[in-house]
Write a protein that binds this DNA or RNA. Sequence first.
DNA 1: CATTTTGTAACTTATCAAGTTTCGAATAAC
DNA 2: GTTATTCGAAACTTGATAAGTTACAAAATG
Lengths: 153, 153
Amino acid sequence: MRHDGRLSRMLHVLLHMDEQQGPMTSEDIAGMLGTNPALVRRTLAGLRDGGYVTSERGHGGGWMLGRPLSEMTLADVYDAVGAPEVFALGLADDQPQCLVEQAVNTALRQTLDEARALLLRRFAEIRVSDLRDDFAARAAALGIHPGMRCAEA
Amino acid sequence: MRHDGRLSRMLHVLLHMDEQQGPMTSEDIAGMLGTNPALVRRTLAGLRDGGYVTSERGHGGGWMLGRPLSEMTLADVYDAVGAPEVFALGLADDQPQCLVEQAVNTALRQTLDEARALLLRRFAEIRVSDLRDDFAARAAALGIHPGMRCAEA
DNA sequence: CATTTTGTAACTTATCAAGTTTCGAATAAC
DNA sequence: GTTATTCGAAACTTGATAAGTTACAAAATG
């Protein structure tokens, strides 16, 4: 199974938006992610619906943060991109007739649910601003100037 | 991404093997799983390599347990099917140049690693025989006779 | 030697995020 | 109001890979 990089990508975008004065166009962002503007719009649409970013059309338009990074958690972003399936591991059949298979499902579901709950709990504990701040602190410690631009594609 | 049902299926198969006197052919098992014998052989090959099942060719051949279910954990079976990727969620780029994206990766990796560790720890704690025993206990409590056959396809 | 059954390679299918193309609609500059 | 810019959205293609399939060789039994 190929994995789902939407959460990862959107976090990346949000952090860059934060250190940008004006709006970023879908094309800017697409260049940053190594993809194309239509995909950027499609994915950012969910964040706009959640109020995490805003978009403006026309000259001088583009995408901007809808609220400070300190007011969004990773869980918020995860939900905003559609709360995609967490696991690649899954059950062979969700509603099996076979009682044995039901027993297998019960055990696996319980374990997967527990791991998912931990993951989402952690996501809810991490503000997007924490990523920025952790990074800034580490960069400073290393003497790196945090002019942290993407290697534009 | 479509999910990976190999662990789930193999647990199902192992439990049925356990309540079977003789060997089960790949065709028997395929009928049980609603698939075909070649896929069964392909997936069971990993369990055979780990000694969890044995296979015999020719007349009267087929698949049998290689050791008691009390001597295999879910983690053993998971490993035997190739330790497939746990998560559907993933990073956009594993080795990014962009320092911001590195910060995102660090945070996500840490969280995913923690959830994966919990999952695999739980898998290691659960013996396959526990699934059988839990099931038998629950079936008995409900007054269901544990003649737990699959709804053959 | 005929039959059963696994072993294995090669190929096709299904799924879905990602990627792409295209055009319409809104906004701003002139 | 015409033009350039930019998002919105629909429709389609691509890529990756577990699952599924086909086919046949090899081994074991009777």
